[in-house]
Measured scan of single mutants.
Amino acid sequence: LSIEDFTQAFGMTPAAFSALPRWKQQNLKKEKGLF
C-alpha cells in the first residue's frame, strides 16, 4: 500500500500503526479484511 492508501484504510500513518502493540495491529488488519 502507498502511504496515502494506508492512511485512508487505517485512519493513521504507517508510523503510528507500527507504534501500536502487535495485537492491536492484528485486530485492525482483521477489521479491514487485510489478514
Rank of each mutant, 00 (worst) to 15 (best):
L1A: 06
L1F: 15
S2M: 05
S2E: 07
S2P: 08
S2T: 12
I3H: 12
I3N: 07
I3C: 11
I3S: 10
I3G: 06
I3K: 13
I3Q: 12
I3D: 09
I3E: 14
I3P: 11
I3R: 09
E4I: 04
E4G: 03
E4C: 05
E4T: 06
D5Y: 02
D5T: 05
D5F: 04
D5M: 00
D5Q: 10
D5R: 04
F6E: 01
F6P: 10
F6N: 06
F6Q: 04
T7P: 05
T7D: 06
T7A: 09
T7I: 12
T7K: 11
Q8F: 02
Q8P: 04
Q8H: 04
Q8V: 11
Q8G: 03
Q8E: 12
Q8R: 13
Q8Y: 00
A9D: 10
A9T: 11
A9P: 02
A9W: 07
A9R: 14
A9Y: 11
A9V: 12
A9Q: 15
A9G: 05
F10E: 08
F10V: 09
F10T: 07
F10N: 06
F10L: 08
F10C: 03
F10D: 11
G11L: 00
G11Q: 02
G11M: 00
G11S: 02
G11F: 01
G11W: 00
G11C: 02
M12N: 03
M12G: 01
M12T: 01
M12Q: 00
M12D: 05
T13E: 05
T13A: 02
T13V: 01
T13G: 05
T13Q: 04
P14Y: 03
P14F: 05
P14T: 03
P14W: 05
P14V: 09
P14I: 06
P14S: 05
P14D: 09
A15M: 08
A15V: 08
A15T: 12
A15Q: 13
A15W: 03
A15I: 02
A16N: 13
A16C: 05
A16M: 11
A16G: 06
A16D: 14
A16W: 02
F17E: 14
F17A: 07
F17S: 09
F17N: 11
F17W: 10
F17P: 09
F17Q: 10
F17D: 15
S18H: 12
S18F: 12
S18W: 10
S18L: 07
S18E: 15
S18V: 04
S18R: 07
A19F: 03
A19P: 02
A19M: 13
A19C: 08
A19D: 13
A19Q: 14
A19V: 07
L20I: 06
L20S: 05
L20H: 04
L20M: 12
L20V: 01
L20P: 13
P21G: 03
P21C: 00
P21Y: 00
R22M: 14
R22S: 15
R22G: 14
R22Q: 15
R22P: 15
R22T: 15
R22E: 15
W23K: 06
W23R: 08
W23T: 10
W23G: 11
W23V: 10
W23N: 07
W23C: 08
K24N: 08
K24R: 08
K24A: 08
K24L: 09
Q25H: 00
Q25F: 00
Q25S: 01
Q25I: 02
Q25Y: 01
Q25T: 00
Q25P: 03
Q26P: 00
Q26H: 15
Q26G: 05
Q26T: 10
Q26D: 15
N27K: 14
L28C: 04
L28Q: 05
L28D: 07
L28R: 03
L28Y: 10
K29C: 05
K29Y: 10
K29V: 11
K30T: 08
K30C: 10
K30N: 14
K30F: 08
K30W: 03
K30H: 04
K30P: 04
K30V: 09
E31G: 07
E31M: 06
E31W: 04
E31T: 05
E31Q: 11
E31K: 04
E31R: 05
E31H: 15
E31L: 02
K32V: 12
K32E: 13
K32H: 12
K32N: 10
K32C: 12
K32R: 11
K32D: 12
G33A: 10
G33E: 13
G33C: 07
G33H: 03
G33P: 07
G33K: 04
L34N: 14
L34C: 04
L34P: 12
L34V: 09
L34S: 14
L34T: 08
L34M: 14
L34H: 06
F35R: 11
F35M: 13
F35Y: 14
F35C: 10
F35V: 15
F35G: 15
